[in-house]
Design a protein around this nucleic acid. Sequence first.
DNA 1: ACCACTAAATGAATGGCATTCATTTATTTA
DNA 2: TAAATAAATGAATGCCATTCATTTAGTGGT
Lengths: 246, 246
Amino acid sequence: MLETTNERAAMPAVSAAQGRTATSGGAQRRRAGRPSAAVLDKAGITAAALKLVSRKGYDGLTMAALAKVLDVAPSALYNHVASKQDVLLLVEDHLMSLVDVSGFGSDSWEDAVRAWAWSYRDVFAEHTPLIPVIAVLPVTDAPQTLAMYETVSKGFSDAGFPQDRIIPSIVALESFIFGSAYDVTAPEDIFDAGSMAESTPYFTAAVRSSASGQDAPAGQERGRPADTAFHLGLEALIAGFGAIRK
Amino acid sequence: MLETTNERAAMPAVSAAQGRTATSGGAQRRRAGRPSAAVLDKAGITAAALKLVSRKGYDGLTMAALAKVLDVAPSALYNHVASKQDVLLLVEDHLMSLVDVSGFGSDSWEDAVRAWAWSYRDVFAEHTPLIPVIAVLPVTDAPQTLAMYETVSKGFSDAGFPQDRIIPSIVALESFIFGSAYDVTAPEDIFDAGSMAESTPYFTAAVRSSASGQDAPAGQERGRPADTAFHLGLEALIAGFGAIRK
DNA sequence: ACCACTAAATGAATGGCATTCATTTATTTA
DNA sequence: TAAATAAATGAATGCCATTCATTTAGTGGT
């Protein structure tokens, strides 16, 4: 959406005839020089990066690997993005469009925030390496991100929040969401005290009883431990912020 | 504290005579082979890593730079740590000892949590690159971290929390704290919509009014925007969790 | 007192990484 | 039609974590 979004369409006939060396077969090299039809654009780079991440994780997202998926030399990427950070930014902005803001405008403020927060957390739990990027990067050239903030801001405003409390409330919720996204990826045994269990009786007891709590005693969250904590914190924040409204 | 903590003391006389090549001057090379007195230990590596981070930031924390500070070949580090992750873990555990848990046992639960959370956030705001490490890493061989959890767990228990709610509550608070630590490092203009300001009226208005709010209208937080959001969220969580106690 | 073992250092690779630059070719613009 | 610009290749560059062979020094067992 940032530019003329080429939609990743190729003209196989022409480009195969002009852009490839003679020796047939799938993985041929393109000859040097500008090709007749552009091979790369931001939308294509973003899509390829997402595919790569879903297949190999963020460790597998290297400029070299990205270039290979796009069948291009690594240096070619730099005609379209300034750096790898730039690629991460493209991915991040795309992911923001997956966050559910549909509740704002239809549901109650509480329900809209609930749906938004859970989907926001779920999206970034799969993409935690982006969190340091998002948390610090200006929103300026991230249109989807901006669109999300606009919808949420309007939702808060319509719900009766005073102007000057809207951003701080959203920021606090986001902070909780980002932290909770990490929590989802934590290993099961993260709180295993190991050999030091004897010297940490209160902690060890608490860990034990939180892990083996009774299963779903009517309307209670019971799934991954991360879900219990997220539910607990989110409801506290919603209750607390709900009281701000006039 | 993990082992016989050498305290970084050196025996200049002996080591200078036996461990150095003849050519005098400060930056001489040690000759190959095991030195009479061990040069490295975990405490020393931790201290050097912290010094390096405070001087050059986390980008400057490389195994090579760390080795240089310790006047050692990079490969020597691997006799004491298995990887760079291991170094980060040492640093992380050290930082946990800086978190203020002194309120638990003396102050009210609310005040103890307040002091704990603010100091926790402040410590890691200076060390955000560690957050992905902490959030996912088992607590097993991190004694200071474990000690912190023990104190906090006891505080919650003494305050009347049901056993099975203690860990989820702490996890939710930590999630909020980690996310908020990132927020502290965000640039001032992070919410600048730039050229798209016209298409995001609600968001833009909210940003403007949160930035230029009236200054400290009696007991209100007014400092960095991050502090406003942190205060707001923390008080909501404390109020919400406080109601859990019997 | 000797000998095998282990611990702790050096120094020289290794392979992966993001990024840059000179060069080539095609398209767009003046 | 000539100059400028855009988009590709391919060959560096420099940094990084990590490994390995080698050297030297202390340690435990007989």
